[in-house]
């Protein structure tokens, strides 16, 4: 029971940081989503010890471990788009897959190259 209470308080705290992120986004007319700005803010505050980990830990852990719960309503919305995936839409699946493979290959190769060079220099 205490845990549920803690989770709610922590999520409320995360929500405030999200609102601050939104505020910054709107004021500075940034094209980066307010939630991402909020994430960067929280990371900096944690890193610099301005916010103690235990102030957000229980709630943040709950949200990250159950991340999927929060976008179920969005994926249920696919019921309004069934016809899109019926015909030409299958092409969209192929495009997403091909692009994903290229991301995996290019990102992986880039970091591998840097790691191998670093390991060679240390030998």
């Amino acid at each position: 029971m205490i845990n549920i209470f803690k989770i709610i308080i922590h999520i409320a705290f995360l929500y405030v940081i999200y609102l601050i992120g939104n505020c910054i986004q709107a004021t500075l007319q940034l094209v980066v989503p307010g939630s991402v700005i909020g994430m960067i803010i929280l990371f900096i505050l944690l890193w610099t010890n301005i916010i103690k980990v235990k102030w957000v830990e229980t709630g943040a852990k709950f949200m990250v471990q159950n991340l999927a719960l929060f976008f179920i309503p969005a994926t249920v919305g696919i019921m309004n788009y069934f016809d899109l995936f019926a015909g030409k839409g299958i092409l969209l699946v192929l495009i997403v897959l091909l692009s994903t493979f290229l991301v995996m290959g290019s990102a992986g190769l880039t970091s591998q190259r840097i790691m191998l060079r670093r390991e060679r220099e240390h030998e």
């Binding site: 989503p33 960067i40 990371f43 957000v56 990250v64 719960l69 929060f70 249920v76």
Partner: peptide
């Protein structure tokens, strides 16, 4: 669903925790 959607924002903020 919109109530749950409202929590997507703080859920993104929470991603700072695993990074930290």
């Amino acid at each position: 669903g919109d109530w749950i959607n409202e929590l997507l924002g703080p859920a993104v903020v929470a991603l700072a925790y695993p990074l930290y």
